[in-house]
């Protein structure tokens, strides 16, 4: 991902800042600039998620793209945050066999990827067992 493309949303990625529609009360992460339910009637404001939730479903990536190859096997999951929205993120666990649907997780700060040895390093939010 290019530097400006990552930088544009880095505080959202670092701190789980999504959005909330004040018209209908729905939370969004990833952030949305338009509420799909209220559209032009919606009033979108920033919202910092607590960072806790549970695993809805998950997989273990064994074959990855080149950039993530060294990290295999790693767990990716769809996580439902306590505010009700869902997102996709890696889950760090010492034993990939211990992950289960419904497992409580919390956010943590980790390196996501790096553009080789000389390019930019991308940081962001992953999840660990609560």
């Amino acid at each position: 991902m290019s530097v400006p493309r990552f930088w544009r949303k880095q505080t959202n990625r670092y701190n789980l800042i999504g959005t909330k529609c004040e018209t209908c009360g729905t939370y969004y992460f990833p952030p949305r600039s338009l509420c799909p339910k209220c559209r032009r009637e919606g009033k979108i404001v920033d919202y910092k998620f607590k960072g806790t939730g549970k695993i809805v479903t998950f997989s273990v990536v064994r074959t990855a793209s080149d950039k993530f190859d060294l990290q295999t096997p790693f767990v990716v999951a769809i996580i439902e945050l306590d505010e009700g929205t869902r997102l996709t993120a890696p889950v760090i666990c010492s034993d990939i066999n211990e992950v289960y649907i419904g497992m409580r997780v919390k956010s943590t700060f980790r390196k996501i990827s790096a553009d080789g040895d000389s390019g930019i390093i991308v940081y962001g939010t992953k999840f660990i067992r609560e």
Binding site: M1, R5, K9, P30, V56, T57, F58, S59, V60, V61, T63, A64, S65, K67, F68, Q71, F74, V76, A77, I78, L87, T88, A89, P90, I101, I112, S113, V122, G124, K126
Partner: peptide, 20 residues
């Protein structure tokens, strides 16, 4: 930006469907 950036692959997305 919100799935692929984390190293999520297509097989892993369908695998999450399968597990669900």
């Amino acid at each position: 930006e919100w799935e692929g950036m984390y190293g999520v692959t297509f097989p892993s997305l369908y695998a999450m469907m399968a597990r669900d």
